[in-house]
């Protein structure tokens, strides 16, 4: 393997994405889950940028740019919600938030 191949970044992307997914599935702290979501978004960005690199396109990079912008918005709202949750419930345990049931 002398050259940088597409498989390289694909495996990196897949690994980070799955680590993020496992984190979301196994952790209970809302903040950690939130960080895992950010990790998953970044993993997807790697794929986009990697394919853009492979095919000499820029569309992938544009997409990644939009994803980062949306991620920023999502982070603001998500953290705002976490703050509100902490104030109201005094907890960051996701299992104690069960209002969706009703």
């Amino acid at each position: 393997m002398n050259e940088l191949m597409p498989e390289h970044f694909m495996f990196l992307s897949a690994a980070l994405f799955i680590i993020g997914m496992v984190g979301v599935l196994t952790r209970r702290n809302v903040l950690v889950i939130f960080m895992c979501v950010e990790l998953m978004l970044t993993a997807v960005n790697i794929s986009f940028i990697g394919f853009a690199w492979e095919f000499s396109q820029l569309t992938g990079q544009i997409f990644a740019l939009f994803i980062i912008a949306i991620a920023a918005a999502e982070a603001v709202i998500g953290l705002g919600i976490i703050m509100a949750l902490t104030r109201q419930r005094d907890t960051v345990d996701i299992d104690e938030v069960r209002e969706l049931r009703q």
């Binding site: 997914m21 979301v24 599935l25 996701i94 299992d95 938030v97 069960r98 049931r101």
Partner: peptide, 14 residues
């Protein structure tokens, strides 16, 4: 099936 536990929903998605 609607437990209200977000973990379960995420699990279903995954």
């Amino acid at each position: 099936a609607q437990t209200g536990l977000i973990a379960n929903y995420v699990f279903a998605i995954a």
